[in-house]
Design a binder for these strands. Structure first.
Lengths: 191, 191
DNA sequence: ATTTAAATATGATCTTTATCATATATAGAT
DNA sequence: ATCTATATATGATAAAGATCATATTTAAAT
């Protein structure tokens, strides 16, 4: 067997990483297979050894991003779930997140996802539900009532990030994020 | 002069109408010039008599949608600004809006807009600011504090509509919208 | 009725890009 | 060292779609 056994796996991850970064910045169509492969220093030929099509790549990149997002990555350390949730929300509602290279896929692919295939849609929905569940868990409640309240919270933070991403005015972005940080506290206070 | 004087103007509006409907449903790239023209029973040749390019069409459609949106269209009648705002928000956060053919461009083009040209970006930002201002006016306040609070409100409703659009699960969509309707009330209560 | 400029339609062209077919490089196993 | 399956690269194909060049239709003005 040629190449070390992890080689292909590593390539695959590099492709996914590049793909997500590019997709989330430019959207599906504006990103070519060539561009993705060049971004991770491979060539288009190799691509089809990893994925059967660009569409499949998109789905995989979405899933990949979800499991490697900031939200999923950082782990609580000596913090109560509530405190941890606080940290999490502030991170989500930060300039770094908004203008970073690995933004939340929920915020960045929303429009794009509508038009794509059922599979992609389902993936998106799965990621969305997971996010709500995660926050609900941290908030430490699970009544139907609280579950409902969380939905408006996630709408807010996803909306904030999505809109902020489009705006050039950095000051305005700061204001949006700051406003949402405050609001999330008020909202969680009622839960 | 051939054709009635309003003819071209009417064609132009038909094109914009079709364009917006299609763009907001499928995104920029998934919509071809041909498709837009067929949608309004014209042919691609005629297109370039109205717009210089597909990109220009996109910008114009965005502006067009903003000035013809539900939000801008309906006028208060015997209602106080506050009551009116209530009606407005409920309309925005309704299934009809989410699954309708003329959804808010802020929610539906967010991802798409990032990658497009500066002009489009500016148009989007203008529409966004106008929306915030409008709500602030109806809310009847204009302190910096309130202005900030509104930003989280609009984030929430835009996010809710954008996400809802992607979800197949109608019940979940209902819950999201309902949750946000409640939250907007709480939020406005504090203003 | 004719004329005519504006509006629309039709048939290329030309570029972009996904995907495929084929060739080459890689490094474990012998 | 050589062999070989796997991974990657290169060049080709083909389809889609934006834009253009040219033809045709329209209805106001004479």
């Amino acid at each position: 067997m040629p190449y070390s056994s992890e080689h292909k796996q590593k390539s695959r991850e590099r492709i996914l990483q590049s793909a997500y970064r590019l997709f989330s910045t430019k959207g599906f169509d504006a990103v070519t297979v060539d561009a993705v492969m060049q971004d991770c220093s491979l060539t288009r030929g190799a691509f089809y050894g990893h994925f059967t099509s660009k569409s499949e790549l998109y789905k995989e990149a979405l899933t990949f991003a979800a499991s490697n997002s900031k939200l999923a990555e950082i782990k609580p350390e000596g913090l109560s779930p509530r405190e941890w949730l606080s940290v999490l929300l502030d991170g989500y509602l930060s300039v770094e997140h908004v203008s970073g290279e690995r933004p939340c896929p929920l915020a960045f692919l929303a429009t794009d996802v509508v038009s794509r295939d059922k599979e992609t849609n389902k993936t998106y929905a799965r990621v969305y539900r997971r996010m709500n569940q995660l926050i609900l868990d941290y908030a430490g409640r699970d009544s139907v009532r609280d579950e409902q309240a969380i939905l408006s919270l996630t709408s807010m933070i996803i909306g904030a990030v999505a809109v902020s991403r489009t705006l050039e005015d950095k000051q305005l972005v700061q204001q949006i994020l700051s406003s949402c940080r405050q609001q999330t506290r008020l909202l969680l206070g009622g839960i």
